[in-house]
Write a protein that binds this DNA or RNA. Structure first.
Lengths: 149, 149
DNA sequence: TGACTCATGTCAGGATCCTGACACACTCGA
DNA sequence: TCGAGTGTGTCAGGATCCTGACATGAGTCA
């Protein structure tokens, strides 16, 4: 019972397990990154910025699924640490293109290895085929729920 | 390139898509629950409490992946709304067993249908087999990362 | 040129959650 | 019996993120 149009047992609800997985992963990343002096948000921002050099705060915020205000705070911390630099004046429009500094890139490389280890540990029990399928299914879920759909 | 021991393209990193899926799902649940006057946290707590009647704050907190303090705040809101009741004195030990009221159960039933709709929309593009596999894979990921592992 | 729209950066305020700490209640073993 | 260990509820403080709002710069079009 307790089915009749509802969600059913939470342990078998994809949404519940999805949040659980995201929470556990974030925790594992946090413990892996803490010794390196990086938060999960900072690492994610560095990784994004390394792959999209010259991004504005707004672009990074969208890529990291947070608001511009939140990303502004993260970027400020990264700038204070000397891992990210932004020009004082906008070269065009209002956007201030951010770039990873050499020191930031070194830090990112260490962090990236650590995070890759966590991801590998998470996926250790899955065959390459299953990993591909898992990724594809998650992307399908995202596409189905996105506002534009 | 940019592979060499690192994470690789973020769009193909399971962790990135996992967080994206969790974020999009939470947003969709929020818009679905808002008309019913429920937050996602409140709904999750009601659903958990309906399936585990008499749970304490600490038990609910563990089940919802938050701290006791956060769950205390959510429960206080639910009690103020009259959807959850707790005895004034602990019948045993210090734990105060919480239960969903009749009014709360009515509200939960509506919310559960709404959330089930969101989940169905998210999984619409997946066959039953793929849904089962997705659930199993996510559970595998959780088990592989859990502290006790 | 001027009005409109859109995107960006920023400020102010509030909501949510976390870490750290403390006191109380039960259980178990010396 | 009593002490340690565990689990629970709660308070205080801080960190992170969000909503709402505003001003600025660029592009579009009458």
């Amino acid at each position: 019972m307790s089915q009749e149009g509802g969600v059913g047992d939470v342990d078998r609800a994809v949404g519940y397990v999805l949040k659980q997985a995201a929470t556990v992963l974030r925790g594992a990343m946090d413990t892996a990154l803490r010794p390196l002096g990086l938060t999960v948000s900072q690492y994610a921002t560095l990784e994004l910025l390394d792959q999209r050099p010259g991004s504005s705060v707004a672009e990074l915020a969208r890529a990291a699924f947070v608001t511009r205000q939140a990303m502004t705070g993260v970027l400020a911390g990264l700038q204070d640490a000397g891992w990210v630099s932004r020009p004082a004046v906008a070269p065009q429009g209002r956007a201030l293109p951010a770039t990873v500094t050499d020191e930031g890139r070194r830090r990112l490389r260490e962090a990236s290895v650590a995070v890759a280890g966590v991801q590998e540990r998470m996926l250790a029990g899955l065959t390459p085929d299953r990993r591909e399928r898992l990724l594809a299914d998650l992307q399908e879920c995202v596409a189905a729920l996105e506002p534009g759909a």
